[in-house]
Design a protein around this nucleic acid. Sequence first.
DNA 1: TCTGGGGTCCTAGGACCC
DNA 2: TCTGGGGTCCTAGGACCC
Length: 440
Amino acid sequence: MYALVDCNNFYVSCERVFNPSLKGKPVVVLSNNDGCIIARSNEAKALGIPMGAPLHLYKELIKRNNVFTHSSNYTLYGDMSARVMNSLSYFVPNMEIYSIDEAFLSLKNFNINKLADEMSEIRKLIYQWTGIPVSIGVGPTKTLAKLSNKIAKKYSSNGIHILTISDQLTQILDDMKLEDIWGISKGWGTRLKSIGINNPLQLQQADPRQIRKLISVVGERIVYELRGQSCLMLEEVVNKKSITVSRSFGNMINDKDNLKKALANHVARATEKLRYQNSISGGLSIFINTDRFRKQDLQYSNGAMITFNEPTNNTAVIIKESFKLLESIYRPQYNYKKAGVILLDLKQDTKNIVQNECFIQNNLFAFTKDIKNFSEGSGICMNLLDDINTKIGKMTLFYGSQGVQKQSRKTKTEKDEWRMRSCYKSPFYTTNWNDLLKVS
DNA sequence: TCTGGGGTCCTAGGACCC
DNA sequence: TCTGGGGTCCTAGGACCC
C-alpha cells in the first residue's frame, strides 16, 4: 500500500505558522511580481477565487471580503517543506518527495488493519512538529493513493482516507470525473470521451491496448493502476535532470544589456542549485519572450540551445555561453517580458569539480574559485550598481572554502564577516561584462 | 495598468550506421 | 520489371504534473 501525504493549502499554511492571526481568515499567496494567485486558504476558495487567477481580476472581491494577500516567500516554503519531509522520514524508511508539498510513503511494513490509526497519528504529529496540516490518502497504487487523498481532502472529517479494491472503489470511480484522476487532464479527457469513455470506472475497465493507442503508454499505465496493479514505482532519488530559472520582468525590456543582466542572474541562481545537488551540466538552453497578453504588440518568442564541450558547473563559463546564445536570438525591435535559462543534461559530479562559485544577492556578485590542492578557495566580490551599464564599484578578494562561502551568505556569522573583511579591497571599474568574466 | 515558475515523460521522425 | 532491412540515437514538440 502507498500513502500520499499532501500539505493543505501549503503556502498559506506556511504563512499561518508565522502569523497565527491569519487562521480562519481568507488568505491568498501571490506569484512573482504579485501577478497571479497561486495559493488560497479554504476561506478564499469559498469566495470563488480560482487557482492561478490574475490578481487584477479579483482586486474588488479581495477588497470587499478583506482577503489577506501575501507575496510569495519561496525560501520559507522550501524550509517548511524540508521540515515536513524530514518529519515524515521518521515514520517510514522509503518515501518519495513528489513535490514541495507532497510525498508518497511506502506502507509495506505497516499492519494493514491498523492503517487508519497509524495515519491519524502521523497526521497529528506532523502538525504538532511543524504546524502544517496535512491530508493522507492510502491506496494500493500511487494513482489510487492520489485519488484517496482527494477524497480525504473533500469528504473526510479527519483528513484521512483508506481506499482498497472493493465495491466502494467501483462506486467512487463511477461518481468521479476523468480529470480527477492523476495524469488525466482536459486534453486526454476529451480524447477518452470521444471513444465513449466518460468516467474513471469506464477507464478502469477499458482495453489497455486501446488506451495506449489513444494516449500513449502513460494512459495504459493509468488503467492498470486503477485496477490496483502498480506500474509506477516509488522514486526515492532526488537529483533533478534539468534546472530552470526564469522570471517575468516588472517592466518591458528591449535592450540587450538588460537581457544579459537578467540571464546572468538566472544562470547564477541555476548553477547554485546545480552545485547544491552536486551535479554538472552538459548543456544550456535560453529563451526570451514578448508579452503574450499584449495582443496589440508584435509577438516574438525564441530560444537557443548549446551542448558544452565539457560538462561544467562553472557559473562564469555558463554566463558566457548564455550571452552567445542571446546574440543569436535577440531582435532589437521587440519589447521583452520574460527571459529564462535551462541547464540540461545534468550528470552527477563524480570528480567533485569545484569551480567558480558565483552568486548574486542584493547586487553583490561573488566569484570564488577553488584552487586544486588548497583546502580553501579564493574569490572576488563586486558591488554592482543598479544597472549593468553602470560601473562596478568595489571589488573584494577573499578566502574561504565553498562551504563557508555558502554559509556566510546565509547566516553571516562573526567568523564569516571576518573572512570578508580580511580581504584586500581595490576599486574596479568596468562597463563590460567580458571584463568581469575575465576577472573571475 | 495588471496575467507564475519549475518540472517529467513519451513519441514520431530524421540522421546515421552496417 | 526489379530499387534491402534492421537497428540506434537524437531531438522537437506535446502531453502531463505541482
